[in-house]
Computed example of a mutant assay.
Amino acid sequence: MTDVPFLTPLSPNQQRAFGLTEPWPLALADRVRFAELDPLNHVNNVAYLIWFEGARVTYFKHVGLTTYTAPDSEPRIVIRRGEIDWLQEMRADEEYVVVTRTVDYRTTSFTLRQEIWSGGTVRAAFTCVIVLLMPDGSGRMPIPEPVRDRFHAVDGVERRVDAP
């Protein structure tokens, strides 16, 4: 796919053209770089984590959780737990898409699911629990209502009975 806009959110049609069966709330395309390869010419395991991180940062901005410009008023965003599955190797110059969505939430934390797609298949998957802390780190911060509303309207998360 040579006309894919890299590092720009993809439309549902662009996502389907990349081989995704259903569009995700956020999808970013890119291409494997030489610096991301290991001595066997496979993508190094650390590169996947960097790709997931880049998509998470963009996702947090898109859902209105942070702008990363107001540390005195925006939450501290912490990964409490993460689990990755490397499913299929990737090589130099492969184009890929990192997709991101919230799949569950509580009052001060939410579960994020991310996948890397290339060639119509999932190559890696990452699930993590994100905790929001007060800007000064003094305790947990509730997920803002507009963000929770977006989790429902855009990400398709079921309403939580334990959330405010």
Rank of each mutant, 00 (worst) to 15 (best):
T8K: 11
L26S: 07
G156N: 04
P164H: 01
D155E: 08
R123T: 04
G137K: 04
S138N: 05
T8V: 13
R106K: 14
L40A: 05
L7K: 15
R76L: 13
G64C: 11
M141P: 02
M134A: 11
T67A: 10
A17N: 13
P135W: 02
V129L: 15
F6R: 12
R150A: 06
R56N: 03
R81Y: 13
R81C: 08
V78W: 05
L28K: 12
C128D: 13
L10D: 00
W117G: 00
Y105G: 09
D162F: 06
D3Q: 07
D38I: 09
A70M: 11
N41Q: 14
F6V: 13
V154E: 09
D72Q: 02
V32E: 02
H42K: 10
V131G: 12
E22L: 01
V157M: 08
E83H: 14
R160K: 08
M141I: 01
T2Q: 12
P71E: 01
E95T: 13
F110W: 09
S11I: 06
W117C: 00
P75R: 03
R76V: 14
P75S: 06
T102W: 03
F126G: 02
E74G: 01
A163Q: 06
T67G: 14
G139R: 04
N44E: 03
M90T: 04
V98N: 02
A125M: 11
R80Q: 03
L112K: 03
N13S: 15
L26T: 03
D72R: 12
L26P: 01
P5E: 05
V32W: 00
G120H: 05
V98P: 00
T2W: 13
D136Y: 09
E115P: 01
G19F: 00
P164M: 04
D93R: 11
D30C: 04
V147Y: 10
P71L: 07
R140E: 05
G119Y: 00
G54F: 08
T107G: 11
I50E: 12
D136S: 08
R159P: 09
Q14C: 07
G82P: 01
T108V: 01
P9V: 08
F34T: 10
V57Q: 09
C128H: 07
W51I: 01
V57M: 03
T102N: 06
W24T: 10
P9C: 02
I116E: 00
N13P: 08
S118T: 00
V4N: 05
A17D: 12
D85I: 02
V98C: 07
L37I: 11
R160S: 14
A70F: 01
E145A: 14
Y59C: 00
